[in-house]
């Protein structure tokens, strides 16, 4: 009797890429819900637009490459990229900008490099960076959280704002939008105000901006879920947040009047979201255990450096993109000690 043969192992675990991506998507839910709660329906519309664009372009590119697009779309990686990008965008960004950023992420940052697994840069952050440098005004015009403005954008208001640029009825743009807490802090500090003065404004919560810090908390819940499920390693988020807190702490201790507290840094902007969902993108991150610690820590340091002395209020996207470039080198120099390696045994 004849049999088909294949290389061992003849058993296969039940893990697959779809499952990995699916769990990350699931982990985004609490954070997305919080965003929706504080910033209204624009968040959801952005997500829908980005997902639609991502699927469309993946389909087109795979067709052009003469491959079957179904497994590629079904692995959920493109949808995840779209979601990560959409979450990072202001909730009233014009529709064509969202679509343009997503298309860039999928077509240029991901598929032109060969698709999933071959992209050197985090596609979502590449798309974000493109939008930020191209449309800085739109990209920094965030809604104020509903707890601050007292108004939550309804579905039709958000729809009109995104698709026809019509300002919401209640008081127009000026009443509803404002600088993000990081931006606010940055502008005020540049006006030589002290932290104590700045923080007297009503927009501040316990650590960061009101509303904002709760969004970060809910992303933290999702991130811890991923660590618990072992979908992501604890090393990158932990080292990134610890490094950010440490360096922020040093400056805060030196002069708490002009340097915000470590807690402010952790719970503002995209620090938590970035640590658990962006920096941990396995394709573009470091993969060796020691390398992940270094990779994460350097992102944390870069975030602080760019926030404090750089040209942009937040820095997760640029920090991650910069470290993406360094990841192969980090991996090369942090190869683990092989079992039975005599030379490195003393380490």
């Amino acid at each position: 009797m004849e049999f088909p043969v294949a290389s061992s192992p003849h058993l296969q675990g039940d893990n697959d890429i779809q499952r990995v991506m699916g769990q990350v998507l699931l982990a985004l839910l609490p954070g997305v819900a919080a965003l929706w709660w504080y910033f209204g329906w624009g968040v959801i519309i952005n997500l829908g637009l980005a997902i639609f664009t991502a699927v469309f372009w993946e389909w087109v590119v795979m067709r052009l490459r003469g491959r079957d697009p179904r497994p590629v779309i079904a692995d959920l990686s493109g949808i995840l990229t779209a979601c990560l990008l959409a979450i990072a965008l202001p909730p009233t960004l014009p529709w064509w900008q969202t679509m343009m950023g997503t298309a860039f992420a999928i077509v240029v940052a991901k598929q032109l490099f060969g698709g999933l697994g071959y992209n050197p840069f985090n596609p979502a952050m590449a798309g974000y960076a493109l939008l930020l440098v191209s449309f800085p005004a739109d990209m920094t015009r965030w809604l104020e959280p509903s707890v601050v403005s007292g108004h939550s954008l309804g579905l039709s208001e958000a729809w009109n704002a995104i698709f026809s640029g019509v300002a919401p009825a209640a008081g127009g743009w000026d009443a509803l939008t404002g600088a993000t807490p990081l931006d606010h802090m940055r502008t005020e500090l540049s006006r030589e105000h002290l932290i104590g003065e700045i923080r007297q404004s009503a927009v501040w919560g316990d650590f960061g901006g009101r509303g904002w810090e709760w969004v970060a908390n809910w992303f933290l819940v999702g991130g811890l879920f991923l660590v618990w499920r072992k979908v992501i390693s604890w090393r990158i988020p932990a080292s990134m947040l610890v490094a950010l807190a440490l360096i922020a702490g040093i400056f805060w201790v030196i002069d708490p009047d002009i340097h915000p507290s470590p807690a402010f840094h952790l719970f503002s902007g995209a620090a938590i979201f970035g640590a658990f969902f962006i920096a941990t993108d396995p394709v573009t991150a470091s993969t060796t255990p020691r390398g992940q610690l270094i990779y994460g820590a350097l992102i944390g340091v870069l975030v602080f450096v760019i926030r404090t002395w750089g040209g942009y209020p937040d820095a997760v996207a640029f920090s991650v993109l910069l470290m993406n470039m360094a990841a192969p080198t980090i991996d090369y120099y942090t190869q683990p000690r092989v079992f039975g390696d005599q030379e490195k045994q003393d380490e």
């Binding site: 043969v5 294949a6 290389s7 079957d68 497994p71």
Partner: peptide, 15 residues
């Protein structure tokens, strides 16, 4: 010598 794994007659095309 073990053959190069892909494309391989040992591996079914998905779909």
């Amino acid at each position: 010598r073990w053959p190069f794994p892909e494309p391989s007659p040992w591996i079914k095309e998905a779909g």
